[in-house]
């Protein structure tokens, strides 16, 4: 299957309809296995039972950034290749990305209180994640403010690509500045610093949340294509009524 084949919305709907039940099943299975492993993981020698929060906080934080990355690639698709489904992909990923970012902030805050003694600190990692959340909300507002999807798509694509500057800032904030947030312990030079007892459940839950994103994104893209079909049919009906 080529990317150009998916440029046809009807073909995309057909593929999505066939894929979604399998993706939903794989998501449920991966999350069930990952979260069971997470519950059975031992307490950390320093953080005690609060280490359990890591299994939801870290995948949400990874996906918060990954989804913006997906939107950035889709924005290139809109501006450079003019792929008909690129703006559909970008628009529908934004609310899902906002939800993951919100969860990363909330679970991070709930982990921070017992470990740092505070729910919130204006340090580089936390602040740059909050900026990411606000950028998601800004993009959603932009999509809602402009009625014509193709006009909204170009403005949103530019904003998304400018906003991508925040991704390396989030990733390297813990190295560039002195922050309360710990440095990277999974994706780092020299391998993971996590013990297998924590690393394996973390990776399985991360796969589960990634599959969840894929499932929700595909379903939301299908809805957006149907919404545009409704819009074009309504416009055709209105122009016919005007001509009659």
């Amino acid at each position: 299957m080529k990317l150009t084949e998916l440029a046809n919305p009807t073909r995309f709907l057909s593929y999505a309809g066939r894929l979604l039940p399998w993706l939903a099943g794989a998501t449920a299975l991966a999350l069930a296995v990952g979260l069971t492993q997470a519950m059975l993981a031992p307490d950390d020698y320093q953080q005690g039972a609060t280490v359990k929060i890591m299994f939801v906080h870290v995948p949400n934080a990874w996906l918060a950034m990954f989804v913006w990355g997906v939107m950035s690639v889709a924005s290139l698709g809109t501006l450079v290749w003019r792929h008909p489904l690129a703006d559909v992909a970008a628009k529908t990923a934004a609310p899902i990305g906002a939800a993951f970012t919100f969860l990363a902030l909330v679970t991070g805050s709930l982990w921070g209180r017992p470990m740092w003694g505070t729910y919130w600190e204006w340090d580089a990692r936390l602040t740059s994640m909050l900026v990411l959340f606000l950028m998601y909300l800004g993009l959603i507002a932009l999509w809602r403010a402009v009625e014509d999807p193709s006009r909204a798509a170009r403005a949103a694509a530019v904003l998304t690509l400018v906003g991508a500057i925040n991704l390396p800032i989030i990733k390297f904030s813990v190295d560039w500045w002195n922050t309360l947030h710990q440095p990277a312990s999974v994706m780092r030079m020299g391998g993971s610093a996590l013990d297998k007892a924590f690393l394996i459940p973390l990776l399985v839950t991360a796969v589960g949340f990634s599959l969840l994103f894929l499932t929700l994104h595909l379903a939301a893209m299908r809805n957006e294509i149907l919404r545009r079909r409704v819009r074009s049919l309504q416009m055709m009906q209105a122009s016919r009524a005007e001509a009659a």
Binding site: G48, A49, T50, K52, I53, V56, H57, N60, P95, I96, A99, F102, L103, V106, T107, L110, W111, R113, P114, L212, L216, A219, A220, R222, N223, L226, R227, R229, V230
Partner: peptide, 30 residues
């Protein structure tokens, strides 16, 4: 630490259920 751990998982479950509800209801609506 039970309150913090349970709250984290509950918040995640609520938001994920809201996302699933959003795509399912929107599909039916369209």
């Amino acid at each position: 630490y039970a309150d913090f751990i349970v709250s984290s998982y509950a918040a995640t479950a609520i938001v994920v259920l809201l996302l699933i509800g959003w795509v399912v209801l929107d599909y039916r609506k369209q």
